[in-house]
Amino acid sequence: MAERRRLLIEPARLRDAQALGRLGLTAAEARYLKRVLRLRPGAEVHVVDGCGQLFGTRLTPEGELSLDRGADARLQTLAAPQPRLGLAVALMRRGMDEVMRMACELGVDHLQPLQAQRSVPQAECRPDRWGVILREAVEQCERLWAPELLPVLSSDDWWNGPSGQSLRLIAVTRDQASTDLSTLLAAHGAGAGCCWIAIGPEGGWTSDELRSAAEAGWCGVGLGDTILRSSTAAVAAATALCSWRRAVQRT
């Protein structure tokens, strides 16, 4: 199968390009197409707007992308996946970059970095870098809907953030009363507009955070019989959520 070359372009910029029939490239985009992918004039490049639309373009001798005007340029239109999936993850010392990339590749729709009470001062907090990682991941994994990266919030400000109609889950450890995440999801239908899961820092949630989450309606869930690193827990949770959604969509 031929390699699919993709660029993620903001919707407003793409609308302007459609009106003109051509899309000017930034220096970084031109360098990626010409030096990294080594494309020549006439090569096909797929452009995604991050909002469910895929467009066909071709690289011109002038170093732009040509595309048809109007709807003729669209190759595919995809409705937003339902239910929406959200991953709230506490800042950690190492692994946030990988969590962002893998959550995007798996299909998570919303990413909420959290400043938890036990997040260490050395924890990674690089929103600009995460934005670049998510852009590259969208292009690589062939998603049509780009995930939303939300501003960093403290855990205290987060528990009442998601809609009360959302399914809100918080990963806990050493809690015999908690239900396994996969078991809870299997018993839950697709009624929730969004399903959120919150992953704590390396030192775990504090008792105050767990109490605040419970008072706000968050349900504690387990991720298995072993204690996972925060980055491992985030990826495991994202995998379970995305597998559940696929199963729900098939029913």
Rank of each mutant, 00 (worst) to 15 (best):
Q82L: 08
L111C: 03
D97G: 01
L54N: 04
A73L: 05
P83K: 12
W218K: 08
L25V: 10
L75P: 01
R135W: 08
I170F: 09
A171W: 03
G21W: 00
L75I: 09
L87W: 11
T26E: 13
D175T: 01
A190H: 14
A137P: 05
A234W: 04
A90I: 05
G56C: 07
R174L: 05
A146E: 06
L87Q: 05
L153Q: 15
L134G: 02
S231A: 15
I9S: 12
Q115R: 14
A79R: 14
S166H: 14
L185V: 10
R143G: 02
P81L: 02
S182W: 00
G204P: 06
A234E: 10
N160M: 12
A43T: 08
L39Q: 13
Q76D: 08
L25I: 11
E105R: 02
P151G: 08
H110I: 14
A90Q: 05
Q140G: 13
R229L: 04
M1Q: 06
G95P: 04
R84E: 13
L144C: 06
L14K: 06
D109S: 10
R101G: 03
D180F: 00
Q76S: 12
R38D: 14
G200H: 04
S231P: 03
R5N: 09
A238E: 00
V47K: 10
T179W: 01
L153I: 11
G86E: 02
L65C: 14
G222P: 11
L228I: 05
E62Q: 13
L223Y: 00
L8E: 11
L33M: 10
E136A: 15
L78F: 04
L65I: 12
P127A: 12
W130K: 09
V235A: 01
E3Y: 07
V48T: 13
E124R: 05
T206N: 11
G107S: 04
L8F: 06
C195L: 09
R22C: 08
R245T: 13
